[in-house]
Amino acid sequence: MIRSVSGNRERKGVVLKLLLATLVVCLTIGVSVSAEVENSVCADCHTELSEIFHNSVHGIAFSGDMNLEKASCESCHGSAVDHANEGDPALIINPANQDQFGAKELCLSCHKDHSFDDWAFSSHNAADVTCADCHQVHGQAGVETKSTTELCYDCHGDVRAAMHLPSAHPVSEGKMSCQSCHDPHGGTTKFSLEADSRELCFTCHAGKEGPFAFEHAPVNEDCMICHSPHGSVVDNLLIQSEPTLCLNCHPMHFHTAGIADEATDFVIPGHPDRTLNSSADSFKTGMLTKCTQCHTMVHGTDNPSQEISNGGQGLTR
């Protein structure tokens, strides 16, 4: 049973923890909490909260048949006797102000859904992010304090910037959210991803997984070697533009060093109606503009490229 919070400042921390622990135990073993102070008494002062509370997720849950019908304000805030008598905020538990060893345990005593199974290992948990940092317990509009993506951006400002670069996943358009890839309550994988990064990407881009007869090794290694998932100034979320990206690992074609004929027109063999113009740097621009114009199958293919001497590994077909 929850007892009153002592007004003694020196003992307050210890008492608060004891009360909180007691509350957790009571809720965990399913004991209904009898209110020492009726909700209506709380509503006398907290008018705005009480008006919106019944439409909040908690308000809806408390009013229904979900074994919480006897829950009260004190279910989360502990005994309100002293607080109600003296009006001092220090005399009542405010879960929002509790540290990671308190508030989250309080919430999880009811929220036993398996979505929160990994919370103990979550990087958010380790970073001392509490439930109230993201969730609006009394809120009317929803559980989160604001839209999920905007909420994440609050602490991850660099991601907000990346998501507004020319090439990005459709998060700003509302077609995806941070939670499409990350589990804010999870944590057994790096960056709290829903799965290992390569596996996660193939969830939506299954055609890139293979297995292929002719592989491109970085695809098997880590998609992030070439792609920046949050956004890029380069098309297709590439970390660098072509050909620089490719030239980090691959040598240029020898043609690149060749100087083309002086500016002349020439006809494509077999296409006498098509005339192209060649200049001194034509081979350079042709070979050093975009590697994937020819090497179109950079994620792998089952069809060999044309040259025997490179073993059909050119990823051009």
Partner: peptide
């Protein structure tokens, strides 16, 4: 549902000739 629009590569950078060796497009 969503639509992702992709640009069209007009391949204009492809057009080179050095002697008999060519780089051409269609």
């Amino acid at each position: 549902s969503l639509v992702a629009q992709k640009g069209r590569d007009i391949l204009e950078n492809i057009g080179a000739k050095k002697g008999p060796k060519m780089l051409s497009h269609e």
